[in-house]
C-alpha cells in the first residue's frame, strides 16, 4: 500500500497520527514506547542501512545522529542562498547543547524524544526508518510534523537551535568561520567570549556547582 497518500495535506490525519496525538497527552509514556520500538529495530537498521551512518557520540546513537543531521538539512538546506546547516555545523552545536547541563535535563531529553518520534512516525507511515527515506519523503515527513501539535512544538525548538547555530558565537560550535554573521551582514559585539569568559567558564566562576 502506498502510504504516501496518508500524508497529503487534503487527507485527514490517519489513525496512526490520531494515536500519536493521543500519546501527546502523556509524552513520557510515548517516549518509553518509542524507545522500546527503537530498540527492537536497531539491529536491522545497522545491517540494512545503505547510507553511511554518523558516528555515535556521547549523546546520540549513530542513527539518531543521522536522523538529526537529515532534519537539520531540511530546516536549513543547501539551496544556494547562504550557508546550510552542515556549513554552520548545526549538528555540532546541538551536541554542545546536549552537553550543557545548565539546561533542565528534560529540555535535552525533549530534543532526543523528537528524534526518536520522527523515526517511529516514519516506520508507522513508510515501514522504513527515517534515514532510509528519500529526501522528498523526509521533507514530507517534516512538513507533517509541523502540522501536528507536538511535532510543531518540537520543530519550533529545532528551528531555534538552528538559528542559534547560525548566529551565536562560533566558540559554541556553530556559525563556522562566522559564516552566519557574514551571510546576514552582522557585526558581532565586542568583547566576544573567550575560553575564559564563555558561558561554561562564567558559570564555573560565578555560579559554582550549577554546571
Amino acid at each position: 500500500m502506498n502510504k504516501l497518500k496518508y500524508i497529503r495535506k487534503e487527507v485527514s490525519i490517519p489513525d496512526t497520527f490520531q494515536n500519536i496525538d493521543n500519546w501527546e497527552v502523556d509524552r513520557r509514556k510515548f517516549l518509553r514506547a518509542t524507545l522500546l520500538a527503537g530498540a527492537a529495530t536497531q539491529i536491522s537498521w545497522f545491517t540494512s542501512c545503505s547510507r553511511q551512518l554518523e558516528q555515535a557520540n556521547d549523546y546520540l546513537t549513530a542513527e539518531q545522529s543521522t536522523i538529526l543531521k537529515d532534519i537539520l538539512m531540511i530546516i536549513f538546506p543547501e539551496d544556494g542562498n547562504g550557508p546550510s546547516a552542515n556549513d554552520i555545523n548545526s549538528f555540532g552545536y546541538i551536541l554542545w547543547v546536549l552537553s550543557d547541563n545548565y539546561r533542565k535535563p528534560e529540555d535535552n531529553e525533549y530534543i532526543m524524544e523528537g528524534i526518536n518520534w520522527a523515526n517511529e512516525t516514519s516506520i508507522e507511515i513508510y515501514d522504513q526508518p527515517f534515514i532510509e527515506l528519500s529526501k522528498e519523503e523526509q521533507e514530507k515527513m517534516v512538513e507533517l510534523f509541523t502540522e501536528m501539535e507536538w511535532g510543531k512544538n518540537w520543530m519550533s525548538v529545532m528551528v531555534t537551535l538552528v538559528l542559534e547555530s547560525l548566529l551565536l558565537d562560533p566558540i559554541y560550535g556553530g556559525n563556522t568561520d562566522e559564516k552566519g554573521w557574514q551571510w546576514l551582514d552582522h557585526v558581532a559585539g565586542v568583547p566576544r567570549p573567550t575560553e575564559e569568559t564563555r558561558f561554561e567558564s562564567f558559570i564555573h566562576k560565578y555560579k559554582p556547582g550549577q554546571i
Binding site: F76, D79, N81, G82, V159, L163, L184, D185, H186
Partner: peptide, 30 residues
C-alpha cells in the same frame, strides 16, 4: 541577532523552515 532571527520564525502563524526561512532572514537582516 537572535531576537531578530527568532521573530522571523513564523509567517502569519506558520512555522518557517527551509528556503522560506532563509529567504526571510536574508531579507530582514540585509
Amino acid at each position: 541577532p537572535m531576537p531578530k532571527a527568532v521573530r522571523n520564525k513564523y509567517d502569519n502563524g506558520t512555522l518557517l523552515y527551509g528556503s522560506a526561512l532563509k529567504e526571510k532572514l536574508i531579507t530582514y537582516f540585509t
